[in-house]
Nucleic acid binder design. Structure first.
Lengths: 271, 271
DNA sequence: GAGCCTTGCTCTATATTATGAAACTTAGCA
DNA sequence: TGCTAAGTTTCATAATATAGAGCAAGGCTC
């Protein structure tokens, strides 16, 4: 007997792809905090038979999606996943086009600049340019941060109506990261009206003590918000006036990027 | 009837994981040059039944490994692969530790710096810091380049003996990228002796016209070469004297990185 | 605009494939 | 030395993935 109708806590209904689903869940079971894991650990966590897990691990390893540490016998993510990740970026027009604009913005303002896209309920950073000042809060490529407590995330939601946002964030955990994190949907909606009007989003120590951020949306040729550009820095350098200044700069850069990826160009192509 | 014993041109013998193997091959069927593909294209290429491919595509899409372009109906790699790629990097001690060293090197010398690791017969770039000079040859994260025609690649082979290298590069295509590319194993081995002796590798327009590179190996706590640090620039700035200078700088940085990730530290830990 | 082709997706019977129990190794530890 | 735990391999079995047929939806040609 087996787990006939049992599907894991992952997504909804799957069918005809049990082995694949399990293997993908294995890959996702390697979090940042624990890069190296044992077969037994993972199999227990996912409720897989150890022989099943072992076989899937081997297949993933053969394909380079996992790699085995010969010293410890443990596994970690393999180079192939990095390769695919790089291909993902290379496939985004936006990423290549944004690079020089982000550098320019970071250089001019001296603060760190991020390019973020949405993934589920998180914003995920797909490009980072560190600022030139001495004190910099590190931000790493691939960093995730909840939509509702990040400037980048809010900017990505800018075109969503109240009802949409309510539906989207229904499943949000609303865990407080700092004392300033917004922890309920009503407060969020209430404050979001202003954000929507002015066209850029802020983050005033909502995700990290001492960190302030502004972000502006990037629109693709359909007018859909496809990314956001955010500028971040320590609170002692970013008073309200400076925030407004940086916001204006972020909006300018975001608009320029939008233009370059075809927003407002209509059907006319070429120069 | 189906392809009973038929395994694709991929790896060797697989068993008990057909569906998974096929799905992974689907992911790898999205090359940089063609980020968006149709189900039928891919299924034809891989020799899969269209219904099989369709099902696998859906499973991969549900898990975020692929994403569907609603306009065109085509698929591309999804955010999840990028997420995993970023986790891969985050899991490498080396990557985090190398960052500041690479920046420092790039700043001091003004030329672009790469951190590369080996993947099969390629070196793959896992970190890039652009130089400060005006003219810079772009290098992108995740860039692949054959071991035998790159400084980064040669540096990764530095500890290999002639026989090992011969075995490793037996399957190499030896395609010429420029007029200076080495195109046979014998010439490679012959010239490699010198490289091994001096402890750093060079690339004199072997991969790209006008590009010169030097690279030095990074060793982990087992003494194994785990990565290479390379410095590259246009030929008009990099005469032989400057190459030697940059090589020395690369070696110094690589040695420092080796030290920081535990090379030569033995069993003693802590400060 | 009608017909034709291609594509993507769903449904279902079938047998191929993945599964899990048990056995076997290897390693660490008392 | 024997014990426990982890990882891998083997193998009979049943559940799973497969491929065929059918359907709906677009694109092209005529």
């Amino acid at each position: 007997m087996t787990n006939t109708v049992d599907d894991g806590p992952g997504t909804g209904r799957e069918s005809g792809t049990q082995a694949l689903d399990r293997a993908l869940r294995i890959l996702l079971a390697f979090p940042r905090e624990e890069p190296e894991r044992k077969v037994s650990d993972v199999s227990r966590e996912l409720g897989l038979h150890k022989s099943t897990a072992s076989r899937l691990f081997r297949a993933l390893t053969d394909a380079g999606f996992l790699q085995r540490n010969e010293e410890t016998g443990m596994y970690r993510l393999g180079v192939t996943v990095f390769d695919l990740g790089a291909r993902f970026l290379a496939g985004l027009d936006m990423h290549a086009i944004a690079r020089p604009l982000l550098r320019e913005l970071a250089e001019r303002e001296g603060e760190s600049v991020n390019l973020g896209i949405r993934d589920g309920l998180d914003a995920i950073s797909i490009d980072v340019v560190q600022g030139t000042r001495n004190v910099q809060l590190v931000s790493r490529l691939g960093r995730r941060i909840p939509l509702w407590c990040s400037a980048a995330g809010k900017a990505l939601l800018l075109d969503h109506g109240d009802a949409e946002i309510r539906a989207l964030l229904a499943g949000a955990p609303w865990t407080a990261l700092t004392s300033r994190t917004i922890t309920d949907i009503d407060t969020f909606i209430e404050r979001f009206g202003e954000v929507r009007e002015r066209g850029w989003a802020g983050n005033d120590e909502e995700s990290e003590e001492g960190l302030r951020v502004v972000a502006a949306p990037v629109r693709d040729r359909m007018g859909t918000i496809a990314a956001s550009i955010s500028v971040s820095g320590p609170i002692f350098r970013l008073d309200d006036a400076r925030m407004a200044e940086l916001a204006a700069a972020a909006v300018r850069t975001a608009d320029e990027l939008s233009r370059r990826i075809g927003h407002g160009v209509g059907e006319i192509w070429g120069s």
